[in-house]
């Protein structure tokens, strides 16, 4: 899933904001473009684990994912054994599931797009929908950003009127080098709805990439979805044919 991977991978190019100064609008845009754009035109392969903690269940999965550009991604479960081989393919805004124990693929019907993906706090719809902070939002320094010191900024991104997202605004905390630390999603009434926290930054192919992300819904305080990268390869050649229904079965 592009969403997951792109949220984590940050290009290593240092942001054009000098530490200790208040960044200009152009500099903010550059920072956000980095948050948006990580490897967008590139490809990735990642092995990761996902832990979902809800009031109802707790579940740990290991998965492998390939992505190429914005349009294509494929993710396949490796563990638990019961779900081994279950795969989700995204091409554009369409989703297919592959179900190994029945050896069948099934396009997710639009009525089910609002459902949770693999039980996590990410919906099927979140997977296929992607908006660019740098283009679909307006941005400014968030109030209180200055108190963070000179090493990081909190940028308040407000969706443009025509952007079809439910949020009132998103506060993105990013280091001066452009590595994201936190995204907080607010409703229009100013209620914090969910937080994504990034940590465990490692360098991959010369890029600073957080290897851990936690999604926390605020109306359910004891719930979270946590993703940890175990291995990450960027800018590797991947055939388009990998993102096909045929390949989904492999």
């Amino acid at each position: 899933m592009y969403f997951i991977v792109s949220s984590l991978i940050i290009l290593s190019t240092p942001a054009p904001a000098a530490a200790g100064t208040v960044p200009t609008s152009d500099q903010l845009k550059a920072l956000l473009t980095q948050v948006d754009d990580n490897g967008r035109s590139n490809s990735s392969h990642v092995v990761m684990s996902m832990r979902v903690q809800t009031k109802r269940f707790s579940r740990k999965m290991k998965m492998e994912s390939w992505s190429k550009g914005k349009e294509h991604s494929l993710i396949r479960l490796m563990d638990p054994p019961k779900d081994r081989g279950v795969a989700t393919l995204k091409v554009g805004d369409k989703l297919w599931n592959y179900l190994p124990n029945t050896d069948r693929t099934m396009r997710v019907p639009s009525a089910m797009m609002s459902g949770a993906w693999m039980g996590s706090h990410v919906s099927n719809d979140d997977l296929v929908r992607e908006y660019r902070l740098s283009e679909d939002y307006t941005y400014a320094m968030a109030p209180g950003s200055a108190s963070l010191g000179s090493e990081r900024y909190t940028i308040r991104c407000t969706p443009k009127p025509e952007t079809p997202v439910v949020w009132g605004h998103i506060d993105v905390t990013v280091t001066a080098k452009g590595v994201p630390e936190k995204q907080e999603f607010y409703s229009e009434k100013g209620k914090k709805v969910r937080t994504m926290t990034y940590s465990d930054v490692k360098e991959v192919s010369g890029i600073q990439v957080p290897h851990k992300m936690v999604i926390q819904p605020h109306d359910k305080p004891n719930e979270l979805t946590e993703m940890v990268f175990h291995s990450l390869k960027l800018n590797i050649p991947i055939e388009d044919s990998r993102f096909s229904l045929q390949a989904l079965r492999d």
Binding site: V52, T54, R56, F57, R59, P80, K82, D83, V86, N97, L99, N101, T102, R104, M106, G115, A116, M118, G119, S120
Partner: peptide, 16 residues
């Protein structure tokens, strides 16, 4: 009939 459901343990329940 292929049936796919969001199982309560978070997995994708599926069966033919």
């Amino acid at each position: 009939l292929l049936v796919v459901v969001n199982a309560l343990d978070g997995s994708i329940g599926n069966q033919v």
